[in-house]
């Protein structure tokens, strides 16, 4: 590396924060700020890896008892409202996956006993794809899917 290049790199590091630049360059994993954050799952590029790293298994039983409320058509992929609700008993976690996103796993929620099996948030979607909700209930995994047509991708 030439001196001038190194200087540019240094400047960039100072401007954006060295961690951020290292992350952007793929040198560092952005799990450092938080030890508990499951970097392997939240940086996985495919659904089976994400599920295995997050929940210990990539297979889940389809269940119509999981209701996923999403728009049929999302004009703006940067803001897609997703609500997941189920009447399955003993729910301890709910995870939301946008299948065709570069990084499919978007969010995972750990529910204490007092929490109702309900979460609602807004996610980014790169393109038309299924949104999968995976629910852990009584040590078993269940899932359901709902397709969202994305007009303008927002990743």
């Amino acid at each position: 590396m030439t001196d001038s290049k190194r200087r540019t790199l240094l400047k960039g590091s100072l401007a954006a924060g060295s961690v951020g630049v290292a992350v952007g360059a793929g040198l560092l994993r952005p799990g450092q700020a938080l030890a508990d954050w499951n970097a392997a799952a939240f940086q996985a590029r495919d659904v089976p890896t994400a599920l295995t790293k997050l929940l210990g298994s990539e297979t889940a039983e389809m269940s119509a008892r999981i209701k996923i409320k999403v728009p049929d058509i999302a004009e703006n992929g940067a803001v897609v409202p997703v609500t997941v609700e189920t009447d399955l008993p003993g729910v301890t976690s709910i995870s939301i996956i946008a299948v065709d996103n570069p990084i499919p796993l978007v969010a995972s929620f750990e529910l204490a006993e007092s929490a109702m099996p309900f979460v609602s948030t807004r996610i980014k979607m790169a393109k038309t794809s299924d949104v999968i909700a995976v629910v852990r209930a009584g040590d078993r995994l269940y899932k359901n899917a709902q397709n969202v047509k994305v007009t303008v991708g927002g990743c």
Partner: peptide, 28 residues
């Protein structure tokens, strides 16, 4: 948390929309 007891913990990445919205429900 409510009254210092955890109700829900969320783990996210950059796939959650800018200025995030979160809704949840609990009993008690």
């Amino acid at each position: 948390k409510t009254k210092d007891r955890i109700v829900l913990t969320a783990s996210w990445n950059g796939g959650v929309s800018k200025n995030p919205y979160l809704s949840f429900k609990f009993k008690g």
